[in-house]
Simulated scan of single mutants.
Amino acid sequence: MDFWTNPPPVYNPPIPYVGPIPGSLQDGNMIQIKGRVVPHSNRFHVNLQCGTEPGHCDVAFHFNPRFECPGYVVCNSFENRRWSSEERKHELPIQKGETFQLLILVQNDSYKVAVNDKHFLEFKHRLPLSRVNTICIDGQVEIVSLSFIKNQIQPAVPAGIGNNIQPAVPAGIGNNAFPFGPTNPFQAAPMFGPATPANLQVPFKAPIAGGLFPSKSIFIQGTIQPNPDNFVINLKPSNSSDIAFHISSRFRSEQAVVRNSFIQNSWNKEERNLAKNPFVPGQQFEITILCEAQSFKVSVNGCHAFDFNYRYQPIQQINELQIQGDVTLSKVLL
């Protein structure tokens, strides 16, 4: 099997994680890492390496954010059991307790790194690409998904055909996320984008550009009001009354988090098998909704809360987020 046929992402891998990169790295391939830095993190690292044995195998690219004061990022390589010369970037685009997307673009002469859709640094190759076969992620970090994305090579244009044919881009992949210029026709999907909407007044409504797709994540941060009745999150197609995914946290009449869908003018079967409502009146919360291959995976305050199998297809048509009820929003990332 050719690795660069976009295999399914690796979801929620344990840390430390050591996994293969089948096939060979080639110009234009990309590695996408979505995760969250734990609140009390000192550092974490991502290694592209030549083998699996820590401390013994060569490392072609070591990316190491360090959360000191001030924070910085170290890049390096490790060869013949010795670290080479460090390259330091005295800037830290990843913060403790926050989610991030890391994109590593492989080029013939270097690795280019973007963090949260912005170009961050470039690291020239010190070891041959052909030797790199393993990725290692370690440190105080949680990983939501790890994806390997194939370069979308534009085929030769037959004689007589115009020159405006665009390279194919997989469904769900945006067209403006990876600012590395026209030499890279493939554009990667942002984990969260655009930035937090300026107006976070509840009831809240915002479009999801490009709709949902596997590996897409939605992040919501806010505070439950002191004497709440309920609050609701809906994911739905904007041109329909259907609701693909309905989350209703109820406080007064019952302590429950009800999940459901509303399709063709009818509510479907409720799901409420949750031992405890993770939302507490008067307290802040964080929700991450991750789209997997067959279901939504929902985490609350960094802990997995529940899954909800897709009932509305195709999920690419789900392109609107709604939030209602007794809640104050501080951040919404789509």
Rank of each mutant, 00 (worst) to 15 (best):
I287T: 06
I247C: 13
V202G: 07
L200F: 01
I224D: 05
S266G: 09
G174D: 10
G172H: 00
Q201W: 01
G282L: 06
A198T: 14
A188H: 02
P281S: 04
S295W: 04
D229L: 06
K269T: 09
Q283V: 00
E270F: 05
W267L: 03
A177G: 12
S240C: 11
P197M: 15
Q166P: 01
I165E: 13
G172V: 12
K276F: 12
A168K: 11
A171T: 10
S238C: 06
S241I: 12
G181R: 01
N199K: 00
K236A: 13
F219V: 15
R252T: 10
N260H: 09
F192C: 11
P214G: 04
A177F: 13
G282D: 05
S240A: 06
I247M: 15
A209C: 10
I220M: 05
A275W: 11
P167Q: 12
N227V: 03
C291G: 01
G181Q: 12
G211L: 07
T288E: 13
P170T: 10
P197K: 07
A168W: 14
A256R: 03
Q255L: 14
I173E: 13
V169N: 15
E286S: 14
G193T: 10
G193Q: 07
F180Y: 11
I287K: 03
I243Q: 00
S240V: 04
T223I: 08
P207Y: 01
F186W: 12
Q187V: 00
F231S: 01
Q294F: 07
I173H: 15
F245C: 06
F285K: 02
F231D: 03
A206V: 14
G210K: 00
P237T: 13
D242G: 00
I289M: 04
N277K: 04
A168R: 09
K216E: 10
T196I: 14
N273Q: 12
A206R: 08
S261A: 14
F245V: 03
H246R: 12
P226L: 10
G193D: 09
I233V: 14
A195G: 13
Q283C: 08
D229M: 04
N268Q: 11
R250D: 05
I233W: 00
K276S: 12
T196S: 14
A198W: 10
G174S: 15
I263Q: 08
N265R: 15
N234F: 00
F186S: 11
N175Q: 07
S266P: 02
A244C: 02
V258A: 04
N175C: 13
V202E: 01
Q294G: 00
F192N: 07
F296M: 02
P190R: 05
I224R: 11
N265S: 13
A177I: 06
P281V: 03
G193Y: 10
E286M: 08
N277F: 05
Q166W: 14
T183P: 10
N260G: 07
N227P: 00
Q284D: 05
I289E: 04
N199E: 07
P203D: 05
W267F: 02
C291H: 05
D229E: 08
N277A: 07
R252S: 10
N164A: 15
L200Q: 03
F251W: 07
P197D: 03
G210W: 01
N176P: 06
I173G: 09
I220Q: 08
A256G: 01
A256Q: 06
F180T: 01
Q225G: 05
I173M: 13
N265W: 06
V280P: 05
P185E: 06
N230V: 13
T196D: 15
F219C: 13
Q294T: 15
